[in-house]
C-alpha cells in the first residue's frame, strides 16, 4: 500500500504562532518541544504530521532500534557501543520521523521490556525496545496528552529530562539514549495538564479557529482540493516546501555558531523575573528559542528583540495558575514593558 501523501505544511492557512513554534523546535531541538492547545478541528494534528515533510535527514547507525546518532559515541546504546568496538557499525541516512504515542500505550511498551518471545524460545534475556527508543532523534507526538495516564507521563518526563531511558523491568536492566522533541496537543475543555508537565514543554501555543471569512473559505478550498487530488495538491506546494526545508536546514547549521551576548542573557532573565515565574527553565528556553529565531531569520547575531519575540511562545504556560483569568499572559503589557526595558521596536 502506498503511503497517502501528508497535507503540506506550507499549505496550512494562518495559525502562524503554531507554525513558528514547530519550526523553531526543528531548528533547535534543545528548545524542549511544544504544547499546542486548542479546540477540535484547528489543524493541530495536521500541522504536526505535516512537519514530517520538512524534517532534515539524520545520519544514524544502520539497524539500531534506538536509531543511535552516527558519530555520537558518548551517547550510544549498549549494542552500538559493543558493535563500535569491533568496527561493524554502518552509517545510514534516514529522514527524521514523527513517532506517535497512542493514548492506550502500556508502560512496558513505552519504556521497553523483556523480549518474551526471545526468552521463551531461547531461554535468554533480551531487551525489546519501546516507544522511547523509537523516538530517539525524532519527534514524539502525543495527541490528547492531557488524557494520558500519569505513570506513562512520568516515564516520558524522566526520559526527556535525562535524554536517557533507564529501564529496570522484568529482569532486564538496560539504558539507551532517548532524546526527542516532545510535541503534545490537547483540548483544554477535557481537563488541564499537571503543571509539572506544562513546565517541561519548551513552548506553548493556543490555537483558535479562523474567524476571518475569506481565510476560512481558503482553508476549505485547499482541504477540498487536497482530498480530491492529494498527489497533485502536494506537487503544487513542492516548491514552497523545499524552500522552507532548505531554510530550516541552513538555520540548523547556524545555531551552533550563534553566541548569545550579555544583553540577551539579561533580557532572558528579566522577563521571567518581571512575570514572577518559578524555576529556571524559562530563562534557558528563552535563550534557546531566541537563538533559533535568529538563525531562522538567517542572522548570526541574536538580539534582545529575539528574546522578546519568542517570549510569546515561552512564557504563557509558565504563568502562575489563576482560574479567573485562565492564566493568560498579557502580551500587550509584556510588549510595552519589554520595549521600554530593552529599547527594541
Amino acid at each position: 500500500m502506498r503511503d497517502r501523501p501528508v497535507y503540506p505544511f506550507t499549505a496550512i492557512v494562518g495559525q502562524e504562532p503554531m507554525k513558528e513554534a514547530l519550526i523553531l523546535n526543528t531548528v533547535n531541538p534543545l528548545i524542549g518541544g511544544v504544547l499546542i492547545r486548542g479546540e477540535k478541528g484547528t489543524a493541530k494534528s495536521t500541522a504536526v504530521r505535516a512537519l514530517a515533510g520538512l524534517l532534515p535527514d539524520r545520519d544514524v547507525v544502520r539497524g539500531c532500534p534506538c536509531s543511535c546518532a552516527w558519530g555520537d559515541d558518548g551517547n550510544m546504546c549498549p549494542e552500538c557501543r559493543e558493535r563500535a568496538s569491533d568496527g561493524s557499525l554502518e552509517m545510514e541516512t534516514v529522514p527524521m520521523r514523527v513517532v506517535e504515542l497512542p493514548l492506550s500505550s502500556t508502560e512496558d511498551r513505552v519504556a521497553g521490556t523483556l523480549d518474551i518471545e526471545h526468552a521463551i524460545t531461547t531461554g535468554r534475556k533480551r531487551f525489546e525496545p519501546g516507544v522511547l527508543a523509537k523516538a530517539n532523534g525524532n519527534i514524539l507526538y502525543v495527541d490528547e496528552i492531557n488524557l494520558l495516564d500519569d505513570h506513562i507521563v512520568d516515564l516520558m518526563l524522566d526520559a526527556a529530562a535525562m535524554g536517557v531511558n533507564f529501564v529496570e523491568r522484568e529482569g532486564v536492566s538496560y539504558s539507551h539514549p532517548s532524546r526527542f522533541i516532545l510535541i503534545g496537543t490537547m483540548n483544554p475543555e477535557e481537563g488541564d495538564l499537571r503543571p509539572q508537565l506544562l513546565d517541561r514543554f519548551g513552548l506553548m501555543v493556543d490555537v483558535v479557529s479562523e474567524k476571518d471569512e475569506d481565510r476560512r473559505t481558503e482553508i476549505l478550498l485547499r482541504r477540498m482540493e487536497f482530498e480530491r487530488d492529494p498527489e497533485g495538491f502536494s506537487e503544487d506546494y513542492r516548491g514552497s516546501q523545499e524552500e522552507l526545508r532548505d531554510r530550516i536546514r541552513d538555520a540548523r547549521s547556524l545555531v551552533s555558531e550563534i553566541e548569545p551576548g550579555p544583553d540577551v542573557l539579561r533580557a532572558a532573565v528579566r522577563i521571567p523575573l518581571h512575570l514572577d515565574v518559578d524555576g529556571h527553565r524559562a530563562d534557558l528556553t528563552l535563550v534557546k528559542a531566541a537563538v533559533a529565531h535568529a538563525a531562522f531569520e538567517g542572522r548570526i547575531e541574536v538580539l534582545p528583540s529575539d528574546v522578546v519575540h519568542v517570549s510569546n511562545l515561552v512564557m504563557p504556560h509558565r504563568m502562575r495558575r489563576n482560574p479567573f483569568q485562565e492564566s493568560k499572559l498579557d502580551l500587550d503589557e509584556l510588549g510595552t514593558w519589554a520595549r521600554e526595558q530593552f529599547r527594541v521596536g
Binding site: E107, D158, E170, G171
Partner: peptide, 23 residues
Amino acid sequence: VRLPLGATEDRIFGGLDIEDTIG
C-alpha cells in the same frame, strides 16, 4: 546508581535471573 520510576520490584530488590536459572 539510578532507580528509575518504572522499575519493577524484581529489578529493585532482586529476583531470579532466568537466563542463569533455566540453564
